[in-house]
Simulated scan of single mutants.
Amino acid sequence: MTRPSQELLRSISDEHVLRSLMSERKLTRAELATTTGLSKPTVSESVRRLVESGLVADTGERTPGGRGKGRVGSFYSLASDVGVALVVTIAPGGVTAECVDAYGDVVGRTHHPIDSPAEVPAVLPSIAAETVAAHNVRLCTVSAADPVDRSTGRLVQLPDSPFLVGELDPVEVLSPLLHGPVIVDNDVNWAAQAEHAAIGVADFAYLYLGEGLGCALVSDGEVRRGHAGLAGEIAHVITVGPSGSAMPFIEVFGQLGLRRSGSTAIDVARLRAADPEVLARAIGGVVTALVTLADPEVVVVGGTWGPSLLDAITAECSRLPRQVGVVGASVAEPSLTGARAEALKRLRTALVEASRA
Rank of each mutant, 00 (worst) to 15 (best):
R19W: 03
S20C: 11
E24S: 15
E24G: 11
R29T: 12
G37E: 08
V47E: 04
R49N: 09
V56L: 04
R62P: 05
P64M: 13
K69N: 13
S80N: 12
L86P: 06
V95Q: 01
V106H: 02
V107I: 14
T110G: 11
I114K: 07
P117Y: 06
E119H: 00
L124I: 05
S126H: 13
E130A: 14
V132P: 01
N136S: 15
P147L: 01
D149H: 14
S151Y: 13
L155W: 07
P162L: 09
G166N: 10
G166Y: 00
S175K: 15
G180R: 02
P181M: 15
V182D: 06
I183L: 15
V184L: 07
N186A: 00
A191R: 04
G210I: 02
G212Q: 04
L213K: 00
A228Q: 14
G232A: 03
E233N: 14
A235N: 11
I238N: 15
V240F: 05
P242K: 03
V252S: 00
F253T: 00
G254I: 04
R260V: 00
T264E: 01
A265K: 04
I266R: 01
A273V: 12
A273Y: 14
L279E: 06
A282I: 04
G285W: 04
G285T: 03
A294F: 14
T304V: 11
W305N: 03
L310Y: 01
A312V: 07
E316R: 10
S318I: 11
S330E: 10
A332H: 14
A339R: 04
E342M: 12
T349Y: 05
A354P: 00
